[in-house]
Nucleic acid binder design. Structure first.
Lengths: 254, 254
DNA sequence: AGTTCAAAGTGTTAAGTTTACACTTTGATT
DNA sequence: AATCAAAGTGTAAACTTAACACTTTGAACT
């Protein structure tokens, strides 16, 4: 038994896991990033490892939501974020398709050949604020631009794809772009979030008007400093107002 | 071992199930209905039974999609329909909360106290076309108006609620109302579907213009007969055209 | 100190969409 | 022949979206 076998394994449900797709937005590169882990390799095995989404088996007594929060924290130290269920993935062979996935599972699971079903979660967070630190069976935990992500472990590429589709839909439908930005942000930054994720160009004037007319942004008495051009006003998202308005009107689409 | 224990139980994953929320629309009563089963009671047990969503454990070798199709067919004989994953439900105590749920599980499961996680599916079908017939552990399989549904077994009321919310969102966002109607339908019937499910009133002229402008309905050279008023034209949904258009424009919202 | 640069900020018009609103037609039933 | 119930139809006003270009500002560079 390796380190990873220690402790709570009796408390784990051996065939159900959670995986977390955590998105962040890099304001310098203007790129959508995703949080990935690189798995610790057992020296007995020789193989090229894949990057993976942070995920692990759930505990008997946890809800899925609790599992997702715990697992993400255990592997990346990221906590206090809102995770939303995406969907369940359960192809019978999802953990067997690749030889190194199987080998890797043998190093951390008492029942490595069990069919494992996973509940995927996703989240939008401020990449600047949350700096991942690897622990448990994660060797590294890093932010990686979504466009650079190579093939991932198990069916994690498929999960990431679904999460990205869900993100695009959500961005068009609900005001969620703010979650990817610092608490105080400029309208230009917000526009970049939309343009980058949706892969479209937006007219600056129309975008501003539309956003401001939703009446859920508060302009602060503060400007962004240190930029090599006219300094823009900072805004923050008015959560309370949004919640109040949400019940009245249906449409918060872009 | 009772009847239900027979056969494939070794092939079943004892802690993962699927549940199906199948919606139909009653054109006479203008009501949204849902497909429910009444469970067979074991004569050894005395309890008031609940209605339940059709659902059961998945098999080891199946995908979730396959499980949902199989289980729905086994319990209600309904087949050849499109089922879409809603989400996973996995509260640790979801099968223990009610005494009669526990008793009932003891009559059909070799491991009745296992924590069972369920993957919920939902579907929109033409209630006239699909007449459920109970089999397996279902004593009855019936269509019931959603507004009349009593408390259901396990957390099925919660699942039904989520499915209904998903249906409302989908109806606003994608042209799915047709699935609840016969292949040939009138615009008045379509409007009723929207009005009933969304719980709103719509202006007839505006509704027709909007629907027809989407360019995904084909007016047939045929009118509805036997109605005690001016006979309306029948329409059908143009699936091919919809798929072609879908890639071009984003918005099919009502 | 002056120039350059890069993004911020700003308004208007035309086109398109949505809303509100009422009467005539038709076919079956009595 | 009269009645009923829903089908079918058009327009104007309000609102929303799309398309479009120039000036301002602050930092960085000379």
């Amino acid at each position: 038994m390796t380190d990873a076998f220690e402790g709570k394994e009796l408390d784990l449900v051996q065939n159900i896991s959670v995986d977390c797709v955590v998105f962040g937005f890099d304001l310098n590169a203007l790129e959508l990033n995703v949080l990935l882990i690189e798995r610790k390799k057992n020296p007995d095995y020789e193989y090229e490892d894949f990057f993976a989404l942070p995920g692990n088996l759930i505990r008997q007594s946890e809800t899925f939501d609790q599992s997702a929060i715990r697992v993400l924290k255990e592997l990346t130290s990221i906590q206090d974020i809102f995770l939303e269920q995406l969907m369940a993935f359960g192809n019978p062979n999802r953990t067997y398709l690749k030889e190194n996935d199987r080998k890797w599972l043998q190093t951390i699971r008492p029942q490595p050949d069990e069919r494992v079903v996973t509940i995927a979660y996703y989240s939008l967070i401020n990449l600047e604020k949350y700096k991942p630190t690897a622990s448990s069976f994660a060797k590294k935990a890093i932010w990686m631009p979504v466009k650079d992500v190579p093939e991932l472990a198990f069916d994690h590429s498929q999960i990431l794809n679904k999460a990205f589709e869900a993100l695009k839909l959500k961005l068009r439908t609900e005001p969620v772009g703010f979650n990817l930005l610092p608490r105080k942000f400029t309208l230009g930054q917000l526009q970049s979030v939309y343009e980058t994720i949706l892969g479209i160009e937006l007219d600056k004037r129309n975008f501003r008007r539309k956003m401001l007319n939703k009446d859920i942004l508060i302009q602060l008495d503060e400007k962004q400093k240190g930029v090599a051009h006219k300094s823009p006003y900072l805004y923050k998202f008015d959560q309370a107002k949004y919640e109040a308005l949400r019940d009245q009107k249906f449409d918060f689409s872009l």
